[in-house]
């Protein structure tokens, strides 16, 4: 029995990709991380699609113009808005991440005195300002799509 127990394979309990999206009862930044990842992958996908679409220019001017006519629908317009929104979020959240991941705007380590307040919590206003700017920009952008 002893010898067996060292060979026993314990049951793996990794959350897996589900753990990227569903985090449990966590706070805002954990979900900004998820959104940053999703928007990044979506923007990359759109970028490749965009290049493929531009490939139509190689054949003739007419095929380009007819493609643009096909794309002149509300659904595509909405898609364009989503791309713009995704870029705005990814860019501004990325700006915050660059600053914070280089150790700026986070402040110095503090001795842990109960109740514990960590650096992200202390600098929460940065996230609120960033969120506010994103929301204002997205509302302004709507005027271009109606």
């Amino acid at each position: 029995m002893k010898a067996q127990s060292s060979e026993r394979r314990y049951l793996e309990n990794y959350l897996g990709i589900k753990g990227w999206v569903w985090g449990g009862r966590y706070r805002l930044e954990r979900y900004l991380y998820t959104l940053h990842r999703i928007s990044g992958l979506a923007l990359l996908f759109y970028f490749l699609l965009h290049i493929a679409m531009n490939g139509f220019r190689l054949s003739s001017g007419e095929s380009w113009t007819s493609l643009m006519d096909i794309f002149d629908t509300p659904i595509v317009k909405f898609g364009e808005y989503l791309v713009l929104a995704g870029f705005t979020f990814h860019a501004l959240n990325g700006l915050r991440l660059i600053l914070q991941e280089l150790g700026y705007t986070l402040g110095r380590p503090k001795p842990p005195v109960y109740p514990y307040v960590d650096a992200l919590e202390r600098r929460r206003p940065i996230v609120f300002v960033m969120g506010g700017v994103i929301i204002i920009l997205l509302v302004v952008f709507i005027f271009n799509f109606i």
Partner: peptide
């Protein structure tokens, strides 16, 4: 990626 969940639960 600075999700900050670790600091929340420590």
């Amino acid at each position: 990626h600075f999700a900050g969940a670790c600091s929340q639960v420590c």
